[in-house]
Each structure stands twice: as structure tokens, then as C-alpha cells.
Write a protein that binds this DNA or RNA. Structure first.
Length: 111
DNA sequence: TACATGACTCTTA
DNA sequence: ATAAGAGCCATGT
């Protein structure tokens, strides 16, 4: 199995957990922030595993570069992601965040 | 060591 | 502008 030691995944979870409520970030930005530039796929991979990670990881705050909820189908329910975002004050239309740039939270800059 | 996977991103047709 | 393909990284087998 995977090494018990934490890998970049743990770092990703830490960054995602650091995302303020009502804000969102992108896979590429996170990958860039952790040092794994271009490894946006790894971030998505980590999110897929995040369902079993504790403390809970707000994966719903992580979307693709276009602000589209690409991973909504990976949640417990396909509506959970947008529901949570809307709940935090973010408008989601057609699986896409409205004014994504406005809600965008860059871990590299904020941190 | 090499191949396969993936909630991405970029470039080209 | 929209669609399709290739590129990229880290991890597992």
C-alpha cells in the first residue's frame, strides 16, 4: 500500500483545509503552491482520496481553472458540492461558479 | 524500470 | 469559438 508517511497529498489537504469559508481555489494553484507545479492532476487525485481523510477536507472549495465543478460527481451526492458552495455564499450556475475570479483564493498569495 | 491512472491544463485543428 | 489531442506530475503495481 501507499507509504504511511505523508506525501504531497497531505500537503494538499492542509492547503485545502486552509481555504477560508466562502472562497474557492483551483487545482493548478494548489499544485503550484505545494511546489508540485503542473501536478494539478495529483491535486484532483488527492481530493478523490480526501473522502476518507480526517479532518474533513473541503474539497468542494476546489474547482478547475474555469471554476467548473468538475469533481462534483465524486462527492457523496452530485449536488453536495454546489450546495455547499451556495451555502457559503458562492453562486453556482450550470456546475460553474459565478465570478470565480472574485471568489478565487490563491494559497500561494494568501499564504 | 516501465506501464497505467487521474476531480488538470495547455496547445493546436 | 468549440472540439480534440498531447503534456504534465506523483503514486501504485
Amino acid at each position: 500500500m501507499m507509504p504511511a508517511k505523508e506525501s504531497i497529498y497531505n500537503t494538499i489537504y492542509d492547503i485545502v483545509r486552509a481555504i477560508p469559508r466562502g472562497r474557492v481555489s483551483s487545482y493548478g494553484a494548489i499544485a503550484n503552491a505545494i511546489g508540485a507545479k503542473g501536478a494539478a492532476r495529483m491535486v484532483g487525485y488527492a481530493m478523490n482520496l480526501s473522502h476518507a481523510i480526517q479532518p474533513k477536507v473541503p474539497a468542494h472549495r476546489v474547482v478547475n481553472r474555469n471554476g467548473m465543478l468538475t469533481g462534483k460527481h465524486h462527492f457523496e451526492t452530485p449536488t453536495q458540492m454546489e450546495a455547499l458552495l451556495i451555502k457559503e455564499g458562492i453562486s453556482v450556475v450550470d456546475d460553474q461558479i459565478v465570478d470565480f475570479e472574485k471568489f478565487f483564493w490563491d494559497p500561494m498569495i494568501e499564504l
